[in-house]
Nucleic acid binder design. Structure first.
Length: 415
DNA sequence: TCTGGGGTCCTAGGACCC
DNA sequence: TCTGGGGTCCTAGGACCC
């Protein structure tokens, strides 16, 4: 095979927990969890006891009585995650960041400067270790999919290079759940037809997979099982939607419960959209009931919006419609708002002449200019004095915050 | 002890247009 | 009046990712 393996996948190990152990030497080698009421992240030592992120703190303590909970250093997570990605960026501009702690890179164009891909991977790991004090695993392969699997196999704190001549020998003995796109449901479906390894998947006829998983998923998995992965590194990906959600425990399905929460969620989402001048046309709301089943409802407008109260009122209408259709559901446990169909970039200089003031919130009116002006004033005050300096009346009070806002921010994609 | 939060992509049916 | 096909958009739900 003529081509060489130049795709890297780098993944910081148990990132948040590793940061805590780096900052506080007394936590090293111990099972720790970031969070309290809910586990936001767990160290490898804690994972060995079955502690998982998203798990209630109480359950985690039962599994691991000696578990130490720490309050997160959220600012440091952002700083160190950015720094680790920047180390990779020192080798090549072709970096595709997947999340705060994970990125792909293509080093094809810089081997003449820095050595083989394996040497570059070693240098990255060394620098992240010495400069940031953090373990990072790296996979090197000819495709993104295989590089990602290699880094998973390399964990914790390892490096795996897959030679292009022995790709399938490496890939085929592995279990299907290591593949991108195989979660619990797909794994179970494949198990029904006796497919447990990637090699078995590769030998399964295409029509059989497509019948089992649908045309798109079937075709995709079949290709990946033979390491046919055409995806390239894309360094500038724009978000396609922005949302926020809040688990609220178990509360009555009443206006006085959902209205303040929706205003708060709308505030979070709309503020982000305004900050990047990216209004959106589709508003989707999700309501989860007591039994954790959930229902969504959406509306697509003629014109994009990003005014907080317009979004909040549209969301309220959608939630009312959901509740009207589910009269037997008396308890709700989560509310979510998402805005999609967001514009590339909205230019006020161009749009303002058409945005006549009094249009209010009528779908199809341009943005709701009067309310937008009020939002801009709020945004400015928050820029200077912080988020909590000003807010939308009732929304400022009584919002249950299972998860700190700083933690939410870490998961937000750049718009 | 019922399970956090922010995203992407796919599917399937229906409306609507040519 | 009934027939057909292609394409796009919208909606709701679901699987999956970090």
């Amino acid at each position: 095979m003529a081509t060489t393996a130049t795709i890297l996948h780098a993944d910081l190990d148990a990132f948040y927990a590793s940061v805590e152990q780096m900052l506080d030497a007394s936590l090293r080698g111990k099972p720790i969890a970031v969070g309290g009421g809910v586990v936001l992240a767990a160290s490898y030592e804690a994972k060995a006891f079955g502690v998982r992120s998203g798990m209630p703190g109480r359950q985690a303590r039962e599994l691991c009585p000696q578990l130490t909970f720490v309050t997160g250093h959220f600012k440091d997570y952002q700083r160190l995650g950015d720094a680790a990605i920047k180390v990779i960026g020192d080798f090549t501009p072709l970096v595709e960041r997947i999340s705060i702690d994970e990125a792909f890179a293509d080093v094809a164009g810089c081997t003449h400067l820095f050595g083989t891909p394996a040497e570059i991977a070693m240098a990255i790991r060394q620098r992240v270790r010495t400069e940031l004090g953090l373990p990072i695993s790296v996979g090197v392969a000819r495709t993104k999919h295989l590089a990602k699997i290699a880094s998973q196999v390399a964990k914790p704190d390892g490096l795996v290079v897959v030679d292009p001549d022995t790709e399938l020998e490496f890939l085929h003995p592995l279990t299907v759940e290591l593949m991108w796109g195989v979660g619990p449901v797909t794994k179970a479906r494949l198990a029904e037809i006796g497919v447990l390894t990637i090699g078995q998947l590769a030998k399964t006829p295409g029509w059989s997979l497509e019948r089992l998983l649908g045309p798109a998923a079937g075709e995709k998995l079949a290709a990946l099982a033979w390491n046919r992965d055409p995806r390239e590194i894309r360094s500038h990906r724009r978000a396609r939607s922005a949302g926020a959600q809040s688990a609220i425990g178990r509360k009555p399905a009443e206006e006085r419960v959902f209205r303040p929460t929706l205003v708060h969620l709308a505030d979070r989402v709309a503020t982000r959209l305004r900050a990047k001048s990216r209004p959106g046309r589709t508003v989707t709301v999700r309501v989860r009931f007591a039994d954790l089943s959930s229902v969504t409802r959406s509306i697509t407008l003629d014109a994009p919006i990003f005014a907080t109260m317009i979004l909040a009122e549209l969301a309220e209408d959608l939630v009312r419609a959901i509740l009207a259709d589910h009269p037997d559901e008396k308890i709700i446990s989560l509310l979510a708002i998402s805005v999609s169909h967001i514009e590339e970039h909205w230019d006020p200089e161009l749009e303002l002449p058409f945005g006549l003031e009094e249009e209010g919130r009528r779908p199809g009116s341009r943005l709701g200019m009067a309310r937008w002006a009020a939002d801009c004033a709020v945004d400015k005050i928050r820029d200077r004095f912080g988020w909590d300096a000003i807010g939308y009346g009732s929304a400022a009070l009584g919002i249950s915050r299972f998860v700190p806002d700083e933690f939410r921010k870490l998961a937000e994609k750049d718009l």
